[in-house]
Protein backbone atom coordinates (compact mmCIF):
# COMPACT_ATOMS: atom_id res chain seq x y z
CA UNK A 1 0.00 0.00 0.00
CA UNK A 2 2.86 2.33 0.77
CA UNK A 3 3.84 2.23 -2.89
CA UNK A 4 0.41 3.32 -4.02
CA UNK A 5 0.18 6.29 -1.68
CA UNK A 6 3.62 7.50 -2.66
CA UNK A 7 2.43 7.83 -6.25
CA UNK A 8 -0.44 9.99 -5.06
CA UNK A 9 1.65 12.65 -3.33
CA UNK A 10 4.34 14.78 -4.96
CA UNK A 11 4.14 17.04 -8.01
CA UNK A 12 0.94 17.04 -9.96
CA UNK A 13 -0.54 19.32 -12.63
CA UNK A 14 1.24 22.13 -14.42
CA UNK A 15 4.79 22.87 -13.36
CA UNK A 16 4.83 26.19 -11.45
CA UNK A 17 6.60 28.94 -13.35
CA UNK A 18 8.74 31.48 -11.59
CA UNK A 19 8.79 34.88 -13.18
CA UNK A 20 11.83 36.35 -11.49
CA UNK A 21 14.40 33.74 -12.34
CA UNK A 22 18.03 34.78 -12.71
CA UNK A 23 17.78 34.04 -16.39
CA UNK A 24 14.78 36.26 -16.93
CA UNK A 25 16.30 39.15 -14.98
CA UNK A 26 19.40 38.92 -17.13
CA UNK A 27 17.51 38.69 -20.42
CA UNK A 28 15.00 41.44 -19.76
CA UNK A 29 17.56 43.58 -17.96
CA UNK A 30 19.89 43.51 -20.93
CA UNK A 31 17.13 44.15 -23.42
CA UNK A 32 15.73 47.05 -21.43
CA UNK A 33 19.12 48.72 -21.04
CA UNK A 34 19.85 48.27 -24.74
CA UNK A 35 16.42 49.61 -25.62
CA UNK A 36 17.04 52.70 -23.50
CA UNK A 37 20.31 53.28 -25.31
CA UNK A 38 18.53 52.98 -28.66
CA UNK A 39 15.72 55.29 -27.61
CA UNK A 40 18.01 57.91 -26.08
CA UNK A 41 18.84 59.84 -29.27
CA UNK A 42 15.17 59.96 -30.25
CA UNK A 43 14.30 61.27 -26.79
CA UNK A 44 17.05 63.90 -26.97
CA UNK A 45 15.88 64.96 -30.42
CA UNK A 46 12.29 65.42 -29.35
CA UNK A 47 13.16 67.19 -26.08
CA UNK A 48 15.62 69.55 -27.71
CA UNK A 49 13.21 70.45 -30.45
CA UNK A 50 10.60 71.49 -27.89
CA UNK A 51 12.88 73.80 -25.88
CA UNK A 52 13.79 77.42 -26.41
CA UNK A 53 17.44 78.28 -27.01
CA UNK A 54 17.98 79.87 -23.56
CA UNK A 55 16.87 76.67 -21.88
CA UNK A 56 19.18 74.60 -24.06
CA UNK A 57 22.17 76.76 -23.20
CA UNK A 58 21.48 76.42 -19.51
CA UNK A 59 20.97 72.84 -19.11
CA UNK A 60 20.70 69.21 -19.71
CA UNK A 61 19.94 67.78 -23.13
CA UNK A 62 18.17 64.80 -21.57
CA UNK A 63 15.83 66.81 -19.40
CA UNK A 64 12.29 67.42 -20.60
CA UNK A 65 11.50 71.05 -21.45
CA UNK A 66 10.35 73.29 -18.61
CA UNK A 67 8.37 75.24 -21.10
CA UNK A 68 7.20 73.53 -24.26
CA UNK A 69 7.47 75.58 -27.44
CA UNK A 70 6.63 74.60 -31.00
CA UNK A 71 8.48 77.60 -32.35
CA UNK A 72 11.50 75.54 -33.52
CA UNK A 73 9.25 73.22 -35.57
CA UNK A 74 7.56 76.12 -37.31
CA UNK A 75 10.89 77.73 -37.95
CA UNK A 76 12.45 74.54 -39.29
CA UNK A 77 9.52 73.91 -41.61
CA UNK A 78 9.07 77.36 -43.05
CA UNK A 79 11.88 79.76 -42.14
CA UNK A 80 15.22 77.95 -41.82
CA UNK A 81 17.83 79.19 -44.30
CA UNK A 82 20.01 77.35 -46.75
CA UNK A 83 22.23 79.82 -48.52
CA UNK A 84 20.01 82.65 -49.64
CA UNK A 85 16.76 80.70 -49.50
CA UNK A 86 14.90 81.16 -46.26
CA UNK A 87 11.74 79.18 -46.90
CA UNK A 88 12.58 76.31 -44.59
CA UNK A 89 12.59 72.55 -45.02
CA UNK A 90 9.17 72.56 -46.66
CA UNK A 91 10.84 73.08 -50.01
CA UNK A 92 13.05 70.00 -49.46
CA UNK A 93 10.08 68.02 -48.27
CA UNK A 94 8.08 68.70 -51.41
CA UNK A 95 11.14 68.06 -53.57
CA UNK A 96 11.59 64.72 -51.86
CA UNK A 97 7.94 63.88 -52.49
CA UNK A 98 8.35 64.83 -56.14
CA UNK A 99 11.44 62.64 -56.36
CA UNK A 100 10.24 59.68 -54.30
CA UNK A 101 6.76 59.09 -55.71
CA UNK A 102 7.68 58.74 -59.39
CA UNK A 103 10.95 56.95 -58.59
CA UNK A 104 9.15 54.34 -56.52
CA UNK A 105 6.51 53.78 -59.18
CA UNK A 106 8.92 53.60 -62.09
CA UNK A 107 11.48 51.41 -60.36
CA UNK A 108 8.90 48.94 -59.09
CA UNK A 109 7.12 48.76 -62.42
CA UNK A 110 10.33 48.02 -64.28
CA UNK A 111 11.74 45.62 -61.71
CA UNK A 112 8.56 43.61 -61.23
CA UNK A 113 8.16 42.96 -64.96
CA UNK A 114 11.85 42.18 -65.11
CA UNK A 115 11.73 39.76 -62.21
CA UNK A 116 8.70 38.10 -63.78
CA UNK A 117 10.47 37.72 -67.13
CA UNK A 118 13.49 36.22 -65.38
CA UNK A 119 11.50 33.86 -63.19
CA UNK A 120 9.08 32.51 -65.78
CA UNK A 121 10.29 33.29 -69.27
CA UNK A 122 13.94 32.31 -69.06
CA UNK A 123 15.53 33.27 -72.32
CA UNK A 124 19.03 32.85 -73.58
CA UNK A 125 21.46 35.20 -71.85
CA UNK A 126 18.97 36.23 -69.17
CA UNK A 127 21.07 34.72 -66.40
CA UNK A 128 24.19 36.51 -67.58
CA UNK A 129 22.53 39.91 -67.48
CA UNK A 130 21.01 39.12 -64.13
CA UNK A 131 24.38 38.13 -62.68
CA UNK A 132 25.89 41.39 -63.90
CA UNK A 133 22.97 43.25 -62.39
CA UNK A 134 23.41 41.62 -58.99
CA UNK A 135 27.13 42.24 -59.09
CA UNK A 136 26.26 45.83 -59.84
CA UNK A 137 24.56 46.04 -56.46
CA UNK A 138 27.96 45.54 -54.84
CA UNK A 139 29.97 47.90 -57.03
CA UNK A 140 30.55 51.11 -55.07
CA UNK A 141 28.37 53.84 -56.56
CA UNK A 142 31.42 56.06 -56.66
CA UNK A 143 32.72 54.15 -59.68
CA UNK A 144 29.59 54.91 -61.67
CA UNK A 145 28.89 58.44 -60.52
CA UNK A 146 30.73 60.31 -63.23
CA UNK A 147 29.78 58.17 -66.24
CA UNK A 148 26.17 58.74 -65.24
CA UNK A 149 26.78 62.47 -65.12
CA UNK A 150 27.97 62.23 -68.72
CA UNK A 151 25.04 60.02 -69.77
CA UNK A 152 22.51 62.38 -68.20
CA UNK A 153 24.20 65.43 -69.69
CA UNK A 154 24.08 63.83 -73.16
CA UNK A 155 20.37 63.21 -72.70
CA UNK A 156 19.85 66.74 -71.41
CA UNK A 157 18.60 65.44 -68.07
CA UNK A 158 21.48 66.43 -65.83
CA UNK A 159 20.22 68.46 -62.88
CA UNK A 160 16.58 67.61 -63.56
CA UNK A 161 14.10 65.59 -61.55
CA UNK A 162 13.66 63.17 -64.45
CA UNK A 163 17.37 62.46 -64.38
CA UNK A 164 17.35 61.73 -60.66
CA UNK A 165 14.30 59.50 -61.04
CA UNK A 166 16.20 57.55 -63.69
CA UNK A 167 19.20 57.19 -61.38
CA UNK A 168 17.03 55.89 -58.56
CA UNK A 169 15.34 53.42 -60.90
CA UNK A 170 18.71 52.18 -62.11
CA UNK A 171 20.23 51.69 -58.68
CA UNK A 172 17.04 50.23 -57.28
CA UNK A 173 16.92 47.67 -60.05
CA UNK A 174 19.31 44.98 -58.74
CA UNK A 175 17.72 44.48 -55.37
CA UNK A 176 14.14 44.90 -56.60
CA UNK A 177 14.65 42.57 -59.52
CA UNK A 178 16.12 39.99 -57.16
CA UNK A 179 13.20 40.46 -54.80
CA UNK A 180 10.59 40.01 -57.51
CA UNK A 181 12.42 37.21 -59.28
CA UNK A 182 12.67 35.20 -56.08
CA UNK A 183 9.06 35.86 -55.26
CA UNK A 184 7.74 34.88 -58.68
CA UNK A 185 9.97 31.79 -58.68
CA UNK A 186 8.43 30.76 -55.40
CA UNK A 187 4.95 30.74 -56.91
CA UNK A 188 4.02 27.29 -58.22
CA UNK A 189 5.34 26.89 -61.73
CA UNK A 190 2.37 24.78 -62.69
CA UNK A 191 0.17 27.84 -62.36
CA UNK A 192 2.18 29.54 -65.06
CA UNK A 193 2.07 26.41 -67.20
CA UNK A 194 -1.69 26.15 -66.77
CA UNK A 195 -2.09 29.76 -67.89
CA UNK A 196 0.00 29.09 -70.96
CA UNK A 197 -2.10 26.07 -71.86
CA UNK A 198 -5.08 28.38 -71.39
CA UNK A 199 -3.60 30.59 -74.08
CA UNK A 200 -2.53 33.58 -71.99
CA UNK A 201 0.51 35.51 -73.19
CA UNK A 202 3.31 37.38 -71.41
CA UNK A 203 1.33 40.44 -70.33
CA UNK A 204 -1.93 38.70 -69.66
CA UNK A 205 -0.25 36.22 -67.31
CA UNK A 206 1.53 39.11 -65.61
CA UNK A 207 -1.54 41.23 -65.07
CA UNK A 208 -4.22 38.59 -64.50
CA UNK A 209 -2.37 35.75 -62.77
CA UNK A 210 0.81 37.07 -61.20
CA UNK A 211 -0.12 40.58 -60.06
CA UNK A 212 -3.20 39.62 -58.06
CA UNK A 213 -1.11 37.05 -56.17
CA UNK A 214 1.77 39.38 -55.41
CA UNK A 215 0.36 42.18 -53.31
CA UNK A 216 2.60 41.53 -50.27
CA UNK A 217 5.80 41.63 -52.27
CA UNK A 218 4.75 44.91 -53.89
CA UNK A 219 4.21 46.37 -50.45
CA UNK A 220 7.63 45.15 -49.35
CA UNK A 221 9.20 46.68 -52.45
CA UNK A 222 7.40 49.95 -51.81
CA UNK A 223 8.60 50.15 -48.21
CA UNK A 224 12.12 49.40 -49.35
CA UNK A 225 12.06 52.01 -52.06
CA UNK A 226 10.27 54.79 -50.20
CA UNK A 227 12.67 54.64 -47.26
CA UNK A 228 15.69 54.12 -49.49
CA UNK A 229 14.95 57.00 -51.84
CA UNK A 230 13.73 59.31 -49.11
CA UNK A 231 16.95 58.72 -47.19
CA UNK A 232 19.21 59.15 -50.19
CA UNK A 233 21.76 61.93 -50.00
CA UNK A 234 24.50 61.19 -52.52
CA UNK A 235 22.42 61.01 -55.70
CA UNK A 236 20.36 63.99 -54.66
CA UNK A 237 23.38 66.19 -54.14
CA UNK A 238 25.09 65.11 -57.36
CA UNK A 239 22.29 64.87 -59.90
CA UNK A 240 20.05 67.80 -58.97
CA UNK A 241 20.39 71.55 -58.66
CA UNK A 242 20.13 73.41 -55.33
CA UNK A 243 16.49 74.41 -55.80
CA UNK A 244 15.59 70.75 -56.41
CA UNK A 245 17.62 69.32 -53.52
CA UNK A 246 15.83 66.57 -51.60
CA UNK A 247 15.09 66.97 -47.91
CA UNK A 248 18.20 65.14 -46.66
CA UNK A 249 20.52 67.43 -48.59
CA UNK A 250 18.69 70.52 -47.47
CA UNK A 251 18.69 69.31 -43.88
CA UNK A 252 22.43 68.79 -43.95
CA UNK A 253 22.92 72.24 -45.42
CA UNK A 254 20.77 73.85 -42.74
CA UNK A 255 22.38 72.11 -39.79
CA UNK A 256 25.95 72.16 -40.97
CA UNK A 257 25.94 75.69 -42.37
CA UNK A 258 28.75 77.68 -40.82
CA UNK A 259 27.04 81.05 -40.91
CA UNK A 260 24.96 82.49 -38.14
CA UNK A 261 24.23 81.36 -34.64
CA UNK A 262 23.58 77.66 -34.16
CA UNK A 263 19.96 77.08 -33.28
CA UNK A 264 20.06 73.57 -31.91
CA UNK A 265 16.34 73.36 -31.27
CA UNK A 266 15.56 74.27 -34.89
CA UNK A 267 18.20 71.82 -36.09
CA UNK A 268 16.70 68.97 -34.10
CA UNK A 269 13.19 69.84 -35.26
CA UNK A 270 14.44 69.78 -38.84
CA UNK A 271 16.20 66.47 -38.29
CA UNK A 272 13.06 64.96 -36.81
CA UNK A 273 10.96 66.29 -39.66
CA UNK A 274 13.25 64.59 -42.16
CA UNK A 275 13.19 61.33 -40.25
CA UNK A 276 9.43 61.40 -39.86
CA UNK A 277 8.48 59.85 -43.19
CA UNK A 278 10.67 56.71 -42.90
CA UNK A 279 9.82 56.41 -39.20
CA UNK A 280 6.13 56.57 -39.98
CA UNK A 281 6.51 53.85 -42.62
CA UNK A 282 8.58 51.79 -40.22
CA UNK A 283 6.13 51.90 -37.35
CA UNK A 284 3.14 51.27 -39.59
CA UNK A 285 4.57 48.46 -41.66
CA UNK A 286 6.20 46.39 -38.89
CA UNK A 287 6.95 42.88 -40.10
CA UNK A 288 6.90 43.81 -43.77
CA UNK A 289 9.69 46.30 -43.16
CA UNK A 290 11.75 43.55 -41.59
CA UNK A 291 11.12 41.38 -44.62
CA UNK A 292 12.12 44.24 -46.87
CA UNK A 293 15.43 44.95 -45.18
CA UNK A 294 16.30 41.27 -45.01
CA UNK A 295 16.05 41.32 -48.78
CA UNK A 296 17.34 44.87 -49.12
CA UNK A 297 20.46 44.28 -47.07
CA UNK A 298 22.19 43.86 -50.41
CA UNK A 299 21.65 47.53 -51.06
CA UNK A 300 23.91 48.67 -48.23
Amino acid sequence: MADVTSTLVGPRGPKPRKILTRNNIMIYGTLIIVSLYYLLPLWVMVMTSLKGMPEIRMGNIFAPPLEITFEPWVKAWSEACTGLNCDGLSRGFWNSVRITVPSVIVSIAIASVNGYALANWRFRGADTFFTILIFGAFIPYQVMLYPIVILLREMGLYGSLTGLIMVHSIFGMPILTLLFRNYFSSLPEELFKAARVDGAGFWRIYFQIMLPMSLPIFVVAMILQVTGIWNDFLFGVIYTKPDLYPMTVQLNNIVNSVQGVKEYNVNMAATLLTGLVPLFIYFVSGKLFVRGIAAGAVKG
Binding site: E190, L191, V197, G199, M213
Partner: peptide, 18 residues
Protein backbone atom coordinates in the same frame (compact mmCIF):
# COMPACT_ATOMS: atom_id res chain seq x y z
CA UNK B 1 2.34 27.49 -78.57
CA UNK B 2 0.81 25.27 -75.85
CA UNK B 3 -2.61 26.85 -76.27
CA UNK B 4 -2.63 26.15 -80.00
CA UNK B 5 -1.93 22.44 -79.70
CA UNK B 6 -5.43 21.27 -78.94
CA UNK B 7 -4.58 19.90 -75.54
CA UNK B 8 -5.91 20.25 -72.03
CA UNK B 9 -3.68 19.68 -69.06
CA UNK B 10 -4.21 18.72 -65.43
CA UNK B 11 -1.45 19.34 -62.93
CA UNK B 12 -0.39 17.66 -59.71
CA UNK B 13 -0.76 20.83 -57.62
CA UNK B 14 -4.08 21.58 -59.40
CA UNK B 15 -2.62 24.97 -60.43
CA UNK B 16 -5.93 26.74 -59.97
CA UNK B 17 -5.70 30.53 -60.21
CA UNK B 18 -6.22 31.44 -56.56
Amino acid sequence: EPSKRGIGMVFQSYALYP
